[in-house]
Design a protein around this nucleic acid. Structure first.
Lengths: 158, 158
DNA sequence: GTAGAATGGGAGTATATACACCCAATCCCG
DNA sequence: CGGGATTGGGTGTATATACTCCCATTCTAC
């Protein structure tokens, strides 16, 4: 079905095409800046905050499990973890299986979370107020759908 | 041991918190990989494809206008443009105002778009099929809302 | 007309992200 | 037990992204 929502003037003015990916990337950038600005006084980026919270939630965790949790490439997680380690927020030590490397929070890491958490909550609240709870719920739904769809498409189910 | 404020988790099991930003970043990554995979045979990433199409749509354009169009930081756009220039897909030349630098497509740039376009359209179609047209419409709405909200929040309306 | 403001653009630096490849430990079979 | 397959991780390289400075041109008062 080609019935679209009110395509404004197909002639005359050229329009940005609605690329799903570009829409998502644009939103991601805009919202990330809001969070990063809010967390800056706590010395964290939103990505770092999220990773610290995952480690807090999961306890001492091998790198691969963290990567799965964050839906990040394992090697990306390695780099992100290295920055937190450099700043003394996280420690790594070998696990029982000597291939694994377990990440855990340091005291400074817990402190950083404590500093950042209220700021993060403020942004969440602000966005809820600005966008509305339903929109945010839609967003969560969407993530689930998109995760599923992405997996299906990438693993070659067409 | 439940250590924190009471109720957000109804199951007692530790849950990933629904961070708006992390949701968006995760979706953005997943979907970008779908597009990048699809466009790889055409030698483009989705970001590059999008930028080329913007230049095609806008004609010879100063860097700042391109950045506004893509809702990207100007300096980010400079770097992205440099890669396309390196690959011979885009040329820059000074404008009437000698401060400006106008970007335009080369023949190779147009050819790259032509190679990539059907692949891009396939992904759009595939996502429309997988996620449904309404979901995609929601996504476009959301981008508008988020853009507005982000601008309001960043420019200090709190 | 000229000095300072404003504007357009780039460079240095830093983080986030992923792919291809490599290494070490463990596992699984014969 | 021994050797290939598997698994867990890291490195090299590349792109995307943005912030802080910095430079050149243009504009605006005066």
């Amino acid at each position: 079905m080609k019935k679209e929502s009110a395509k404004p003037s197909p002639h005359g003015e050229k329009r940005r095409s609605a690329c799903v990916c570009i829409n998502l990337r644009s939103m991601s950038r805009a919202v990330s800046q809001i969070y990063d600005d809010a967390l800056a006084p706590a010395g964290l980026k939103v990505t770092q905050f999220s990773l610290l919270r995952a480690i807090e939630r999961l306890g001492p965790t091998p790198v691969g499990a963290l990567a799965d949790d964050q839906e990040l490439d394992r090697t990306t997680l390695t780099r992100n973890l290295a920055l937190l380690e450099r700043d003394g927020l996280v420690e790594q030590s070998p696990g029982a299986d000597k291939r694994t490397s377990l990440a855990r929070l340091t005291r400074a890491g817990s402190a950083a979370i404590a500093r950042a958490l209220p700021r993060w909550e403020n942004v969440q609240k602000e966005l809820r107020r600005t966008l509305g709870a339903e929109t945010l719920a839609q967003l969560s739904d969407l993530r689930a759908k998109v995760s599923g769809a992405a997996k299906a498409i990438v693993t070659g189910v067409h």
